[in-house]
């Protein structure tokens, strides 16, 4: 019997993206540049995160016309963002045939208490996380893919590094625990017990975990792979740089060959100015997107 929207089909889609770069785009032209550079998928948006920061106000799901334009422009998968807890935005994107939905803290949350019940949908979801508790809660709700939250739109890698290290250290800790210690760990992390048992058995998270939120250079992408990311999302980093085509290609290569330092040196030459970054310490708490969601 033919089954759609199963856990295996939804998680499997993310497994196929491993080792790749997913790029934020705001129109067909950018989507084509991303595809030509070797992106494994594109995220269709109305504004990239750094512009969302500048614009302020409420950030919502993109205009469906933009999502449609991007879907028609490329053959690689197209992702789009819905607000945290916004059931209807997510259902609309699913009905449009978007390949993956990012329930994203980059947009203004629609619900400050409850995330989406992602297991209810046929379309797979990716969610942000800062630690294993958050990661496990999202998987518990049905997320098929994770990414670090980082601090989007800053061009500053420090938060993504913090989140990737934290999750991986906590996974190692769970794997090393004896089973009778897992219930207490579940309580402390706020994580479903069954998931910790599964993580211990697998020796890793049951879904892929990409890096996101602050990747601005090829070396940043390679650093995240070095720290154990399965792949990377690049938001503002590409189309806010001086030479998007060159930047996009270089980030793809650095992600594939993250241990080939001579190659990274070569592709990083004369790339032009990357996006201008923001020191996280200068961001007031109210502007820290990573605090959105729980």
């Amino acid at each position: 019997m033919k089954l759609v929207g199963t856990e295996r089909v939804k998680r499997g889609m993310a497994e196929m993206q491993k080792g790749g770069v997913i790029m934020d785009v705001i129109n067909a032209e950018q989507a084509k540049i991303a595809e030509a550079a070797g992106a494994v998928a594109v995220m269709a948006l109305e504004r990239v995160p750094s512009d969302i920061r500048k614009a302020g106000g409420v950030a919502r799901m993109a205009d469906p016309r933009i999502v449609e334009e991007v879907m028609n422009a490329v053959t690689i998968p197209v992702m789009a963002k819905a607000r945290i807890g916004h059931i209807v935005e997510a259902r609309v994107l699913e009905a449009m045939g978007v390949d993956y939905i990012d329930e994203s803290e980059v947009l203004t949350p629609a619900d400050e208490e409850f995330h989406l019940l992602k297991s209810d949908y046929t379309v797979p979801f990716v969610c942000g996380c800062r630690d294993l508790g958050e990661a496990a809660r999202r998987i518990g709700e049905g997320a098929s893919m994770l990414r670090t939250k980082g601090e989007p739109g800053t061009g500053n890698i420090v938060e993504a590094v913090r989140h990737m290290r934290k999750v991986n250290a906590q996974v190692r800790r769970v794997v090393g625990m004896s089973t009778d210690e897992l219930m207490t760990e579940a309580k402390l992390l706020g994580a479903p017990f069954e998931l910790l048992v599964e993580i211990k058995k697998l020796g890793r998270l049951p879904v892929v975990n990409f890096a996101a939120g602050g990747i601005a250079t090829p070396a940043d992408a390679a650093l995240m792979m070095e720290l154990g990311a399965d792949g990377v999302f690049v938001g503002s980093g590409i189309f806010k740089s001086e030479n998007p085509e060159k930047f996009a290609r270089a980030i793809v290569e650095a992600t594939t060959h993250y241990k080939d330092y001579k190659l990274i040196a070569e592709i990083s030459k004369e790339l032009g100015t990357p996006m201008k970054g923001i020191d996280i310490a200068t961001l007031p708490d109210s502007e820290r997107m990573q605090e959105r969601g729980w």
Partner: peptide, 15 residues
């Protein structure tokens, strides 16, 4: 032929 079953929502498993 590429993507001949549609988009991700049409992806499936079968025996």
């Amino acid at each position: 032929e590429r993507n001949s079953y549609g988009r991700q929502v049409d992806s499936f498993e079968v025996e």
